[in-house]
Every structure is written in structure tokens, then in C-alpha cells.
Design a binder for these strands. Structure first.
Lengths: 143, 143
DNA sequence: AACAATAATTAGCAAGGCTAATTAAATGCC
DNA sequence: GGCATTTAATTAGCCTTGCTAATTATTGTT
């Protein structure tokens, strides 16, 4: 049936556009000097505040041992620190340092500016279309 | 100026939506039993036809040694093969096997269906907005 | 007090990224 | 024609980031 085929085709094109877009901006992240897994985890604690290791692993969709090692690296680089949770001394609380927050925000700025440079080629109407689509996609993916 | 700030904000939201979307569909790729770098390289040779190792590395934005090892793995798994280019015997030509093409197409199908399942929650009008946005984004990112 | 469950870490493996160095073939230049 | 340079690919060796299994420390339960 036509409706389903159309949705499949849209999904296909949306998917490959997303790949293309991220591939483009990812190059900018190299300038931070922080690897992608570390940068992404740092982003969670900078914008979401302190979290346990398990929660951070879940947020990043990796297993706890993987996250433990990423946090090791963030601590080594002075971007985050571990505290032990005093209510439950098995658990740790991971939080960003000043330096970590600063580096993340600069990197984010760089990435966004870079992508914005491309979007600025488009008319206001086209930008509005993207705005609408972003809302629709977020709605579709919610839950 | 207001226009620039808006574009930055749009870039930010588009970027994080793209991350969210790809994270979601990526989980489906596990079902192919082929790792992400291999799957992505296989996709290039299935849809783009035979290429040299250097060209394939460039298409995938990795260095030649990295691609050499990925192709080793694809050959080991029977998904691709190397031929030597007879015009330039330093070079290899990499092409997909029947099995490689089949597995890739099945995986792509799976991913697309999965994403389409989310998009189908949206109205025809919302889907049309995404369609328009995909075109606009592709235009913006084109050279 | 003993036992089970939970949070994190350690150990060890594989995939996938890199640079530097090597090999083989093609090209360019007297 | 022969030698130097360039080019295509590979090999070697490193790092990061993913995993599972096993361990340690603490908490909760009975």
C-alpha cells in the first residue's frame, strides 16, 4: 500500500540525511581534544547535573564498566570528579569540574556555529521548515 | 543580531535531534551481526559499486589502514572481495558478494521499517514537513 | 547473624580509530 | 634504460571504546 511505502521512503531519506549531517559536524569535535564517548558523557553531567555511574551509563546507553573507564579518563584529564554518595556509600556521584564545563561549552559552541554556517545558506522559509520538522521528529521519537 | 541567534538555536536542536534519531535506529543494526564500520563500508560498495580502497576510505572518512582492516573482516565474513585492478596493479577493487548485498539490504530494510514505525505516528502534514526539511537540509549541506 | 541484592570496579577480549614504516607498482626525468 | 619519486596498499603497534564475567564493598532482608 502506498502510504506505508511513502513512510518507508521518508524514513530512509531522513536516516541518511541524519548520518550525513552528523558526519559533517563530528569533525569539529576533534578540536576539543576530547574523544567522542568522553565528550558525550561530559555533556550529560554538564547539562544534567551530578549523577550516579549507573545512571550515566544508562543515559549514554553503555554498560557500567564502559562508563567507569570513561569517567576514569575524564578524571585523569581534570574534566570531572567522583564523589561517594553519603546516603549509599556503594555509589558514586559524578560531576563536571569548571574546566570540564568550560571545554564542553566551547566545543558545543563550535559545533553549533559550524552547522549554523550551513543552515544560514537557506531562506527563512526553509529554516522554518526544518524547525517544524525537528518538532515533528521529536514528537515521533518521544516515549 | 536576532537572525543569527535563531540559526544557532536551530542548529543546536537539529543536531541533538539527529543524535537522538541515530541512537535509536542503531540498535537495530545489531541484528545483522555485522559491526557498524563494516556495515557502513559494505553499504558504500553495495549501493555505489566497486571502488578502490583509498576511495572507500575517503568515502567513510577513515584512513586507508583502518579501511584495509575493515575490508579484511568483510572478506573473512564472505561479504566482500578484493580484486587487483589490472590497469594499476598497486590498487585493489573492492566489491560486495551476493551474500554481502543480501545482508546489507535486509539490515537496511530493518532499520528503515523501524524508523518508519515511529514516523507513522505522525499526520500526513507532519510527514510532509519532514520531507521538506530533508530536502532543505540536503541542499544546505551540499558543497 | 547470615544471605541476597546492588553499585562499582577489575580483568580480559574485540572492534575500530590513528600514525609511522614497509612493500610493490607506476611515473618522471635525465 | 635506469634511477628517483610518487602512489596504493599493507603491516606493526598504539589508544579508545564497546562487551561479559568475576570481584569487592555496601546495603537490605529475614
Amino acid at each position: 500500500m502506498a502510504r506505508k511505502a511513502n513512510t518507508d521512503e521518508l524514513a530512509d531519506r531522513l536516516h541518511s540525511t541524519a548520518i550525513h549531517l552528523l558526519r559533517l559536524v563530528r569533525a569539529q569535535d576533534a578540536a576539543t581534544g576530547v574523544g567522542p564517548a568522553r565528550l558525550s558523557a561530559l555533556s550529560v553531567i554538564v547539562f544534567g547535573g551530578p549523577v550516579s555511574l549507573n545512571d550515566l551509563a544508562r543515559a549514554e546507553q553503555v554498560r557500567p564498566p564502559t562508563m567507569s573507564r570513561i569517567v576514569d579518563a575524564l578524571e585523569r584529564e581534570g574534566l570531572a570528579r567522583r564523589r561517594t554518595n553519603q546516603q549509599d556509600r556503594r555509589a558514586v556521584v559524578i560531576e563536571a569540574t569548571q574546566k570540564g564545563a568550560q571545554i564542553l561549552k566551547q566545543g558545543r559552541q563550535r559545533r553549533v556555529k559550524y552547522l549554523a554556517g550551513y543552515l544560514r545558506r537557506l531562506s527563512a522559509a526553509e529554516q522554518k521548515q526544518i524547525e517544524n520538522a525537528v518538532q515533528a521528529i521529536q514528537k515521533a521519537l518521544a516515549r
